[in-house]
């Protein structure tokens, strides 16, 4: 074996270094894209960690049964509160107005669940002990399925809820005579 450098060795090294530089550029570009999307609020993870006691959900605080469902806020936005438990969501059918900023606040009463709204990018885990917060805006009316997306024991396959997106005036009319809304009227 010779230790002196060969010409082809130098060429090989040069090509290799060029490729490494290209790879680093690709990665810098991807990271930059993620940072850009984050800063411009495309969708952002929740910024604060909120704690809640799952054993007293039904007795006190914002997740008592009479407070679940969609609430119209003074600023015109809508807050949806939901609870997941083995093997259903409450409310089982969520109603929201279109073209309105929605804040979803949800948690679990027992094990780890998750929810995703099909055809949208609303998708979050529900971990008992913590409150999940996600914002959304629906641009079209219609109905979406909302399955539990995390294994939560034997009844997991039956845990499907619905989301109905309705016109804003219709929602406001419903909200005028009821504090908390769900599809069941």
């Amino acid at each position: 074996m010779s230790v002196e450098k060969s010409a082809s060795g130098d060429v090989a090294l040069k090509i290799e270094r060029r490729w490494a530089a290209v790879s680093i550029l690709i990665i810098a570009f991807l990271t930059g894209m993620a940072a850009y999307a984050g800063i411009h609020q495309a969708v952002m993870p929740q910024t604060t960690v909120e704690i809640i006691n799952p054993t007293t959900l039904h007795m006190t605080g914002e997740f008592i049964e009479s407070n679940l469902g969609s609430a119209l806020e003074p600023d015109g936005s809508v807050t949806v509160r939901a609870v997941a438990q083995q093997y259903s969501f409450t409310p089982a059918c969520i109603v929201v107005p279109k073209d309105t900023p929605i804040t979803l606040r949800a948690t679990s009463a027992d094990v780890v669940h998750g929810l995703l709204i099909q055809q949208t990018n609303v998708n979050t885990m529900l971990v008992p002990g913590y409150v999940s917060v996600q914002t959304a805006k629906f641009e079209e009316t219609g109905e979406h399925l909302m399955p539990c997306q995390e294994f939560c024991s034997v009844g997991h396959e039956g845990m499907w809820a619905k989301v109905q997106v309705i016109d804003k005036p219709q929602f406001l009319a419903m909200a005028s005579n009821k504090r908390r809304l769900s599809c069941a009227e």
Binding site: A34, V43, M44, P45, N123, Q149
Partner: peptide, 12 residues
């Protein structure tokens, strides 16, 4: 790897 893209396919 991207939070934004992941949210449409997470746990699917």
């Amino acid at each position: 790897m991207s939070y934004q893209l992941d949210s449409s396919i997470h746990n699917t």
